[in-house]
Amino acid sequence: MFPALLHDALTVGAVLFVLGLVGILTRRNLIVMFLSAELMLQGISVSLVAWSRYHGDFGGQALVVFVLTVAACEAAVALVFVLQAFSRTGRLDAAAWQSLRDAEVPRRIDRELPATDAAPPVWPQLTPAGVRPRRDETAEPEREHV
Protein backbone atom coordinates (compact mmCIF):
# COMPACT_ATOMS: atom_id res chain seq x y z
CA MET A 1 0.00 0.00 0.00
CA PHE A 2 2.67 2.44 0.99
CA PRO A 3 5.26 2.87 -1.75
CA ALA A 4 8.49 1.17 -0.86
CA LEU A 5 10.52 3.66 -2.83
CA LEU A 6 9.36 6.53 -0.66
CA HIS A 7 10.20 4.60 2.46
CA ASP A 8 13.68 3.69 1.33
CA ALA A 9 14.50 7.09 -0.12
CA LEU A 10 13.35 8.83 3.03
CA THR A 11 15.52 6.50 5.06
CA VAL A 12 18.52 7.30 2.88
CA GLY A 13 17.77 11.00 3.31
CA ALA A 14 17.48 10.61 7.07
CA VAL A 15 20.78 8.73 7.25
CA LEU A 16 22.56 11.40 5.23
CA PHE A 17 20.99 14.11 7.38
CA VAL A 18 22.11 12.47 10.59
CA LEU A 19 25.61 11.81 9.25
CA GLY A 20 25.93 15.45 8.35
CA LEU A 21 24.67 16.49 11.74
CA VAL A 22 27.17 14.27 13.52
CA GLY A 23 29.86 15.67 11.31
CA ILE A 24 29.10 19.27 12.07
CA LEU A 25 28.92 18.47 15.76
CA THR A 26 32.21 16.62 15.97
CA ARG A 27 34.65 17.62 13.26
CA ARG A 28 36.64 20.69 14.17
CA ASN A 29 37.97 21.57 10.79
CA LEU A 30 35.82 24.43 9.55
CA ILE A 31 35.79 23.12 6.01
CA VAL A 32 34.77 19.64 7.05
CA MET A 33 32.08 21.21 9.20
CA PHE A 34 30.80 23.02 6.18
CA LEU A 35 30.87 19.88 4.07
CA SER A 36 28.88 18.14 6.78
CA ALA A 37 26.31 20.90 6.66
CA GLU A 38 26.06 20.36 2.92
CA LEU A 39 25.60 16.67 3.60
CA MET A 40 22.61 17.54 5.74
CA LEU A 41 21.22 19.53 2.86
CA GLN A 42 21.74 16.52 0.60
CA GLY A 43 19.69 14.42 2.95
CA ILE A 44 16.99 17.04 2.88
CA SER A 45 17.05 17.15 -0.90
CA VAL A 46 16.63 13.40 -1.15
CA SER A 47 13.71 13.47 1.26
CA LEU A 48 12.08 16.35 -0.57
CA VAL A 49 12.35 14.67 -3.91
CA ALA A 50 10.99 11.46 -2.44
CA TRP A 51 7.96 13.26 -1.11
CA SER A 52 7.64 15.15 -4.34
CA ARG A 53 7.45 11.93 -6.21
CA TYR A 54 4.99 10.43 -3.76
CA HIS A 55 2.66 13.39 -3.96
CA GLY A 56 3.12 13.91 -7.65
CA ASP A 57 3.81 17.55 -6.93
CA PHE A 58 6.68 19.55 -8.27
CA GLY A 59 6.77 21.96 -5.38
CA GLY A 60 9.21 19.73 -3.56
CA GLN A 61 11.56 19.64 -6.49
CA ALA A 62 11.29 23.39 -6.80
CA LEU A 63 12.21 23.65 -3.14
CA VAL A 64 15.26 21.48 -3.84
CA VAL A 65 16.36 23.96 -6.48
CA PHE A 66 16.26 26.64 -3.83
CA VAL A 67 18.08 24.46 -1.38
CA LEU A 68 20.81 24.13 -3.98
CA THR A 69 20.89 27.88 -4.45
CA VAL A 70 21.08 28.50 -0.75
CA ALA A 71 23.84 25.95 -0.51
CA ALA A 72 25.78 27.82 -3.17
CA CYS A 73 25.33 31.12 -1.35
CA GLU A 74 26.32 29.56 1.93
CA ALA A 75 29.37 28.15 0.25
CA ALA A 76 30.42 31.59 -0.91
CA VAL A 77 29.92 33.12 2.52
CA ALA A 78 31.52 30.19 4.26
CA LEU A 79 34.56 30.42 2.01
CA VAL A 80 35.05 34.04 2.94
CA PHE A 81 34.65 33.40 6.62
CA VAL A 82 36.91 30.38 6.59
CA LEU A 83 39.61 32.18 4.64
CA GLN A 84 39.51 35.15 6.94
CA ALA A 85 39.57 32.94 9.98
CA PHE A 86 42.55 31.11 8.56
CA SER A 87 44.43 34.26 7.77
CA ARG A 88 43.98 35.48 11.31
CA THR A 89 44.76 32.35 13.28
CA GLY A 90 46.62 30.20 10.80
CA ARG A 91 44.32 27.34 11.60
CA LEU A 92 41.03 26.00 10.42
CA ASP A 93 40.07 24.98 13.93
CA ALA A 94 36.59 25.81 15.14
CA ALA A 95 37.68 25.48 18.75
CA ALA A 96 40.34 28.14 18.31
CA TRP A 97 37.66 30.78 18.56
CA GLN A 98 36.97 31.06 22.23
CA SER A 99 37.78 34.62 23.09
CA LEU A 100 34.09 35.49 23.25
CA ARG A 101 32.81 33.64 26.24
CA ASP A 102 31.44 34.33 29.66
CA ALA A 103 33.88 36.22 31.83
CA GLU A 104 33.94 33.54 34.49
CA VAL A 105 34.51 30.51 32.31
CA PRO A 106 38.12 29.52 31.75
CA ARG A 107 39.42 28.86 28.28
CA ARG A 108 39.03 25.28 27.29
CA ILE A 109 42.26 23.51 26.36
CA ASP A 110 42.50 20.11 24.80
CA ARG A 111 44.61 17.34 26.08
CA GLU A 112 48.08 17.29 24.70
CA LEU A 113 48.36 15.60 21.39
CA PRO A 114 51.32 14.11 19.69
CA ALA A 115 52.09 15.88 16.44
CA THR A 116 51.36 12.84 14.32
CA ASP A 117 49.68 9.57 14.77
CA ALA A 118 52.93 7.68 14.76
CA ALA A 119 55.62 8.17 17.31
CA PRO A 120 57.63 11.25 16.44
CA PRO A 121 60.81 10.44 14.56
CA VAL A 122 63.83 11.27 16.61
CA TRP A 123 66.95 11.63 14.54
CA PRO A 124 70.24 10.74 16.14
CA GLN A 125 72.37 13.72 16.70
CA LEU A 126 76.08 13.30 16.38
CA THR A 127 77.97 15.24 18.95
CA PRO A 128 81.39 16.45 17.92
CA ALA A 129 84.18 14.96 19.90
CA GLY A 130 85.30 16.85 22.93
CA VAL A 131 82.16 18.92 23.24
CA ARG A 132 79.63 18.32 25.91
CA PRO A 133 76.37 17.12 24.41
CA ARG A 134 73.80 19.85 24.37
CA ARG A 135 70.11 19.43 24.06
CA ASP A 136 68.60 21.26 21.22
CA GLU A 137 65.38 22.76 22.43
CA THR A 138 64.09 23.46 18.95
CA ALA A 139 64.49 19.88 17.92
CA GLU A 140 62.13 18.72 20.59
CA PRO A 141 58.93 17.56 19.01
CA GLU A 142 56.53 20.39 19.11
CA ARG A 143 53.66 19.67 21.37
CA GLU A 144 50.64 21.56 20.44
CA HIS A 145 48.06 22.95 22.67
CA VAL A 146 44.85 23.70 20.97
Binding site: E74, A78, L100
Partner: peptide, 19 residues
Amino acid sequence: AQGQEASLKYFFLSLVASS
Protein backbone atom coordinates in the same frame (compact mmCIF):
# COMPACT_ATOMS: atom_id res chain seq x y z
CA ALA B 1 39.11 39.29 15.80
CA GLN B 2 36.02 39.57 17.95
CA GLY B 3 33.87 40.56 15.04
CA GLN B 4 35.19 37.66 13.02
CA GLU B 5 34.56 35.26 15.83
CA ALA B 6 31.04 36.54 16.25
CA SER B 7 30.21 36.20 12.59
CA LEU B 8 31.80 32.77 12.39
CA LYS B 9 29.84 31.46 15.34
CA TYR B 10 26.63 32.94 14.12
CA PHE B 11 27.09 31.57 10.64
CA PHE B 12 27.88 28.01 11.61
CA LEU B 13 25.16 27.81 14.20
CA SER B 14 22.72 29.22 11.71
CA LEU B 15 23.76 26.45 9.32
CA VAL B 16 22.77 23.85 11.88
CA ALA B 17 19.57 25.64 12.76
CA SER B 18 18.53 26.17 9.16
CA SER B 19 19.13 22.52 8.36
